[in-house]
Design a protein around this nucleic acid. Structure first.
Lengths: 330, 330
DNA sequence: ACACAGAACTAACGCGCGTTATTAAAGCGC
DNA sequence: GCGCTTTAATAACGCGCGTTAGTTCTGTGT
């Protein structure tokens, strides 16, 4: 930068002023032109680290996930990344691999890099407790929530997801809709069931508890559940299956096809998660709900930016809708 | 750091010495203890940016990929990330989204952050030409190679992959092995075919060109190709299909099943790419070769570390083996 | 007694930049 | 001509640290 200044016949301060087009600094066009020419000629690049040091703004946000691989984490990263870069901020990404030691090591590194905010994302919707050190910096949870209830979080709207799935099946004319749920204890299972029941009641149907069966989040579990449902006497048999995730829908598909039933003609199916490689390749293609990972990542950076700028948050707990992806199984 | 020094009753220099346990500095245990206690008590964290500035070592490596999402990029990131963090180095990740403008913007940002090395990874094995600016910093290409032949690169060993797949089928007793290839013009197609033919010749079989058909990298293309192969007169019909990727293997599965043939009893299949969600969920599960993305990412960081340390590279063009994953389709 | 060597420590500079306080020159009204 | 404001520019400090070239304090041998 001193070289640029010398080359342009001005002081280093003036160069700094044009580089940051400092408001209030009166720089004649001719001078600015000379400086820009010198920059170009010398191939000068500002040093981001030095700039951060002097300005006391690192420009970094941190993102800690459980695994970098895996479709979900990748989507969160994508969403956060796009928003961050477009805003001249950068993402320091780390994976905890589910190991508390790695997690806290990653956190230490991020704090040493003076991140101005921290995003903590999990693979599945659940409660977490973070190391105390996170209090040193604005933190937003993504796809999880603070067991102590102190940190702001961004969560998928499971209830409206359940509602939307059920509503879609109701609209298609189904009245006996079974729900092959995840492990009933987890938040996703609770929320989706509430949405499922709300949709039914809204349609004037009293929810039948016998139509809600846990599939334990596995294809085999859902297969067993579907078999049990489909083997009931005709009057009790559901004509539609809402499955807790796409892998479970795969299991349900097997049970349906084994019985010579056709999808969606005899039995309609709706999944959850939109695991592209499953949902788009099943036959028929699976209608499912997408977890809004990318949107949550984007929203996370937005909230961090606000927090880092000292603005208060309007909501401590943000929910993001799960869009319905229409394919051919309803 | 000055606070720590004052609190421990020493100079800032001494604190710096114990923090970096500087070889040659004689620090009595008692003093070291006092300093560490002060650090702990004050909750001091070194400022990574300031340290980088003073030491003239940023500690950053850059990684540019086409897309952050997508299973392949994620694996490269994982591999690079693990190696980098374990080595106290950090990864500045950017996605070009296939847009040259974004790519060069990302590159600029990385250079401003004074990355000590750059990894450039593509989704599929091919030639690339990078902006001239990459010459400012050691660069290694991952899964692609420099059209100008100047930059070091890390590539999957397509030839040995083709060999290994074919060899596996030969070992299972097959002699008429068809190869439903990718677009014949791309490097992966060329290399794999060479390996395929080498394996055949080694087994005393003269490669039959009529058994090599392009499937154009799509499930439909491979389906058509498989139909044509399987509908040949019995004497000409292959008993094994080696497919250019897993999606193509899906297409081949359909053609095989439609004809009432069984996998692997009547026709064996080997895929390529190991797309988990396809290969592990097809019935029967698909035997396939994995592209070593994670290993290539790791190797990439290794090479960068060597280059950044000023060591010369022993090889300019490194190849990494594609491991065979045995499942149930052979 | 003195010289000398090592141990323990520190003052001071510089990394590349943002920023504040200040100066010098130019323009303007009377 | 004199005061005043605006414009154009700069010197100097500090961000938090690594590092070099010292300085001061011990102990040892003669």
């Amino acid at each position: 930068m001193s070289d640029v200044a010398r080359h342009a016949g001005v002081s280093r301060t003036t160069v700094s002023f044009v580089l940051n087009d400092r408001p209030g600094a009166a720089i004649p066009d001719e001078t600015r032109r000379r400086i820009l020419a010198a920059i170009d000629e010398l191939g000068y690049r500002p040093n981001a680290g030095a700039r951060a040091l002097a300005a006391k703004r690192s420009g970094w946000f941190g993102l800690i996930t459980e695994i970098v691989t895996g479709p979900f984490a990748a989507e969160v990263i994508t969403g956060a990344q796009k928003r961050a870069w477009s805003d001249q901020r950068f993402l320091l990404i780390a994976a905890s691999e589910g190991d508390p030691a790695q997690e806290s090591a990653a956190l230490d590194q991020m704090l040493e890099h003076r991140v101005e905010g921290l995003l903590y994302a999990t693979t599945w919707h659940r409660a977490v407790t973070l190391p105390k050190a996170v209090r040193e910096v604005p933190t937003v949870l993504v796809n999880c929530y603070d067991a102590a209830g102190e940190l702001p979080c961004i969560l998928p709207d499971e209830e409206s997801g359940g509602y939307r799935a059920t509503r879609r099946l109701l609209d298609a004319g189904h009245t006996r809709i079974a729900f092959i749920n995840l492990d009933p204890a987890i938040p996703a299972a609770v929320g989706r069931r509430e949405g499922y029941e709300r949709a039914l009641r809204e349609a004037g149907i009293t929810p039948d508890p016998s139509l809600v069966i846990p599939g334990w989040a596995t294809a085999d579990g859902a297969y067993d559940a579907a078999c049990e449902l489909l083997d009931r006497p005709a009057a009790d048999r559901p004509t539609a299956l809402f499955c807790g995730n796409d892998r479970m829908a795969m299991g349900a598909y097997d049970a349906i096809k084994e019985r010579g039933l056709r999808i969606p003609h005899d039995v309609a199916v709706v999944g959850f998660d939109n695991q592209e490689l499953i949902a788009a390749y099943l036959r028929p293609k699976l209608t499912t709900l997408a977890l809004p990972f990318e949107a949550m990542g984007t929203k996370g950076v937005d909230m961090l930016a606000a927090l880092a700028a000292g603005q208060p948050l309007d909501t401590h707990r943000v929910t993001v809708d799960c869009p319905l992806l229409e394919r051919s199984s309803v």
